[in-house]
Design a protein around this nucleic acid. Structure first.
Lengths: 105, 105
DNA sequence: CCCGAATGTAACAAGTTGGGTATGTATCCG
DNA sequence: CGGATACATACCCAACTTGTTACATTCGGG
């Protein structure tokens, strides 16, 4: 959990995940898409790997990174109890609106 | 988005949110619940405030903090496209299991 | 077997974080 | 008014982050 949230706190890393959402991508390609040099990207990839957010596969000299969306399930689960709260608030808001409508009739 | 994810990347801050999930709580009470001294907690509260994750209300000398779960909606929305992916994988897994069962018949 | 391509790692500088202690600041109470 | 209470802020320091450049490593091709 901690590792995943830590990984998500950086915008470059979130950009990487966004790219990988479309298709597996080599480290070099990812580096081109980011405004930083390749070694920096390598380290970001390491963080993502250690958080379990991506997988690597070797293809000749290239490393192909793929997204591992399951790793985000724990974030989703962490959100669970909070989701209930904000949905309750939204429900209350809807009720309020409904009551308002009724009152206006 | 960035501010919220950054705020969530720290465990002390997540603990604060967890406490606030139950009930509004004063800064002092929050500080007692954490393993760090009060000024540190104050700073964490500031980060949470600036990310929109909590609200403060003044009650005499005390500051009462309340959770603002709506701020987490954007995290939920950010998860959206990824959620679809991991659900697809789960579906595939279920299909696989079903096929396995069928094969075993 | 050596060269180039692709990528990771090491080492370093600059900025940021997160903790602590010391010091404001506002509010209630006697 | 003056002291106590409850916080926040200022400042300092050690640890981590993030970017850079230089170097090591690994793989395929001629």
């Amino acid at each position: 959990m901690d590792a995943v949230l830590h990984a998500l706190a950086d915008e470059s890393r979130r950009t990487v995940l966004e790219i990988l959402r479309d298709r597996p991508t080599s480290a070099g390609e990812l580096a081109e898409a980011l405004p930083i040099a390749r070694p920096g990207v390598s380290r970001h990839l390491r963080v993502l790997r250690e958080a379990g957010l991506v997988d690597v596969r070797q293809d000749a000299q290239r490393r192909i990174y793929t997204l591992r969306p399951e790793a985000l399930v724990e974030v989703d689960e962490w959100l669970g109890p909070y989701r209930r709260l904000w949905q309750t608030r939204l429900d209350a808001l809807h009720t309020e609106i409904t009551r308002g409508k009724k009152a206006r009739r």
